[in-house]
Write a protein that binds this DNA or RNA. Structure first.
Lengths: 193, 193
DNA sequence: CGATTTTTTGAATCATATCAACGTACGTGG
DNA sequence: CCACGTACGTTGATATGATTCAAAAAATCG
């Protein structure tokens, strides 16, 4: 049940068995069926979520009613509206399941309890935030300064596992492209070989 | 000399006079002439910089030799290669001065000394990082899902002060546009009124 | 199996980039 | 302080990349 999380944390920091035991007491396991919401825009963002199995996606809806995928998360990823979680505000994203999914939910208070009891946990969170920050920055530079094809190739290289399991039109959305455009790019790449 | 920084920190957290005094001892004031580099890609990112007066910009250079402006910073802003600073790696950005500029430089060790002595300083940093994160996220969504004109208008709304003092082609670069395109957008907006 | 969603394809259109030329502002050395 | 050279911004013509709209083919779901 907690294997994936244990592996993830101990790949970054060391824990004593007691510390790990405590962390597990703070997680709320939950199963989510495909298409079900985990979080909706406007909800209080009371928790952050670790994916044990399955696949989730977060997205915003703009004024024109268009969905924009913000993030995908598969096994071993955290997902949530980080800025809302940190600032204790209402979520501006929706999160839903693209497959039947098992997650561990951690409430804000639970995070704080862990930080108090497990000194290395704060470092783990900082590393997580940093990694997130760096990845987002790369994505921003790519979004601003490359063509659609380059964006697609870059994503394929960086997240090959995700490409294989999420619908193509959501990848298009993540990249800021129209589904038709992505379809044509794929065709072109295939024929280039 | 330290007024701007004092105002900035105390707008987010409270400090005792002694704490503030200590912080000032950890800052290295420096003057930078227009066009001079503060940091070059490949340098060790040993410090983070607070702008007292003037204007700086950070940018990357891509494989094709094109510059991409990552950030501007005027009075009251921090600037640096945050990911390199946090991870203690080499900078991937350049930072140079767009005007004659006065900064306070803070080394990594200095930040750590302050964190030790001034408990609220860590919270200040966290708030800074969060704000940064949220702003970057908005910029990303804007980059992915809006037209050139919308990006320009959004930036004008969010950073009117910066628009007035940096060269137009750098704003274009920040937005991921060509200078000619930005010129035409401005013309169109002016005539729409 | 039928119904719905997703992907593909085509043609027309729109937004932005490119290339080239020109005018203007700017700062730099004489 | 002036004059020259370089940067910068604007404009026009054209090319390219991406979107839009419509429809058909393919995949998935119940």
């Amino acid at each position: 049940m907690f294997d994936v999380l244990h592996k993830h944390i101990t790949s970054k920091v060391s824990l004593t068995p007691q510390e790990w035991e405590f962390i597990t007491t703070q997680c709320i396991p939950k199963k989510i069926r495909k298409k079900q919401y985990l979080l909706q825009a406007g909800d209080k963002a009371e928790f952050f979520t670790f994916v044990n199995k399955g696949c989730l996606r977060s997205y915003t809806v703009d004024d024109a009613g268009e969905e924009h995928v913000v993030q995908f998360a598969i096994e071993g990823w955290w997902i949530g509206d980080l800025s809302a979680f940190l600032t204790n505000e209402h979520a501006s994203y929706n999160i839903d399941a693209l497959e039947d999914t098992e997650v561990l939910m951690m409430e804000r208070d639970a995070q704080e309890r862990i930080i108090e009891r497990v000194p290395m946990y704060e470092r783990y969170l900082r590393l997580l935030l940093q990694g997130n920050y760096v990845a987002m920055h790369r994505r921003l530079v790519s979004a601003i300064s490359t063509t659609a094809e380059e964006k697609y190739l870059r994503m394929q290289k960086q997240y090959p596992d995700i490409m294989q399991r999420v619908p193509q039109h959501m990848i298009a959305s993540y990249l800021g492209l129209k589904p038709e455009t992505l379809s044509r790019i794929r065709k072109k790449i295939a024929s280039d070989k």
